[in-house]
Simulated scan of single mutants.
Amino acid sequence: MSTDIDANVEAILRKYKTITVVGASDAEEKPAHYVPEHMQQHGWRIIPVNPRGGTILGQTAFSSLAQVPERVGLVNVFRPSFQAPEIARQAVAAGASALWLQLHLSSDEARRIAEDAGLLYVENRCMLVEQRRLMLSAPTI
Rank of each mutant, 00 (worst) to 15 (best):
V122I: 14
R111F: 06
G73S: 14
A110F: 04
S81H: 08
E115T: 14
Q90L: 00
E70P: 04
A98W: 08
S97C: 04
V92M: 09
V72K: 12
V122T: 07
G95T: 03
N76R: 00
V72A: 13
G73C: 06
L105C: 10
G58D: 07
I47N: 05
H104W: 12
S107K: 03
G43W: 15
A94T: 02
E86Q: 15
L74G: 02
I113C: 05
L99Y: 08
G54L: 06
V49D: 04
A91E: 01
Q59T: 10
R89Q: 15
W44N: 02
N124I: 06
A93P: 10
E70D: 11
W100F: 09
P51I: 06
L119W: 04
V77T: 07
A117M: 09
E123Q: 15
H42V: 01
G53K: 01
Q59W: 04
L101S: 01
R71D: 11
H104E: 10
F82D: 15
S81M: 04
A93Q: 13
G43E: 15
T60S: 05
A88M: 08
R45G: 06
F82W: 11
V77H: 02
E123V: 00
G54I: 12
S106V: 08
G54Y: 14
V68A: 05
E123W: 00
A84Y: 04
N76L: 08
L105F: 13
Q67F: 07
I113N: 03
A93D: 14
A91Q: 02
E109M: 05
A84W: 01
A93S: 13
E70N: 11
L99I: 09
W100P: 01
S106C: 11
A96S: 13
L103H: 15
V68E: 02
V68K: 05
D108H: 11
